[in-house]
Amino acid sequence: MAVLPFLVSSYAREIYLYNNRTFPVIKQEYVQPVKQYAAATYSYDQIDNALAKGWITAQEHADTTALMPPRPAPPAPEPTPEPEPTPEPPVTIPGTGDPSSPPETTLESPPAQEGESNAG
């Protein structure tokens, strides 16, 4: 008897997604086409879910996943950004124009030479 595509997709949906049928209750000639259809159509998560819920056996799971392309690698985690460095406080050189700091030294009149006076 010919395998009908609409039954293949229906059986796959009923077995892997809804648990309304199992492989032992479908006709033997549909078993492999249903596994092939599921492998080509469903994701690893959907096939794994059917196994986890007991809808398919470990052997049925292995048969189906063997027909699938390699399982995709999990995405690499985002790298943790480097913390921003804490800026150091600015270096202030006293007497260089910062009006809030008094000058280090004050200029004095040159000492008077002999015979001269500083009075003007």
Rank of each mutant, 00 (worst) to 15 (best):
S43Q: 06
P99H: 12
E88F: 11
A40V: 00
P89G: 10
T80H: 01
E116I: 04
L107H: 11
V8R: 14
A50Y: 07
S9G: 07
T22P: 00
N20G: 13
F6C: 13
P110L: 15
K27W: 00
D98A: 10
Q46D: 07
P102F: 00
A2C: 05
V31W: 02
P77W: 05
K27F: 10
I93W: 11
P85N: 01
S9Y: 02
K53T: 13
E84Q: 09
P85G: 05
Q59I: 12
R13L: 07
P89M: 12
L107D: 09
I93S: 12
P94M: 03
T86M: 13
E114Q: 08
A112R: 10
E84R: 15
P70K: 11
A58M: 10
Y44W: 13
A39N: 12
Y16M: 10
A12P: 02
A58N: 05
Y44M: 05
F6D: 15
E108H: 00
P70A: 07
G115C: 01
A76M: 01
Y44C: 08
P102L: 00
S100L: 14
P72C: 01
V91I: 11
T106L: 15
P5N: 06
I26A: 03
A58V: 00
T41I: 00
P33R: 05
H61K: 06
I15G: 02
Q59F: 13
K35F: 04
L51A: 02
A119V: 12
P75Y: 08
P33T: 01
E108I: 09
Q32S: 13
Q36L: 08
M1C: 10
G115K: 06
P24E: 12
P89Q: 08
P83I: 03
Y42Q: 09
P83M: 00
P87F: 02
V31M: 12
G97M: 04
V8I: 05
T86H: 07
K27I: 07
P90D: 04
V34M: 14
Q36Y: 05
Q28F: 15
T92K: 14
P81V: 11
A66Q: 06
I93Q: 14
R71F: 03
P5M: 00
P87Y: 00
K35E: 03
P87V: 03
I56R: 01
E114V: 08
M1H: 07
D45C: 04
P69N: 05
R71W: 04
P77H: 13
Q36H: 10
T64A: 13
A40C: 02
K53N: 13
D98S: 09
E82R: 07
A73F: 03
A62H: 09
P99G: 11
L4P: 01
Y42R: 11
T64L: 03
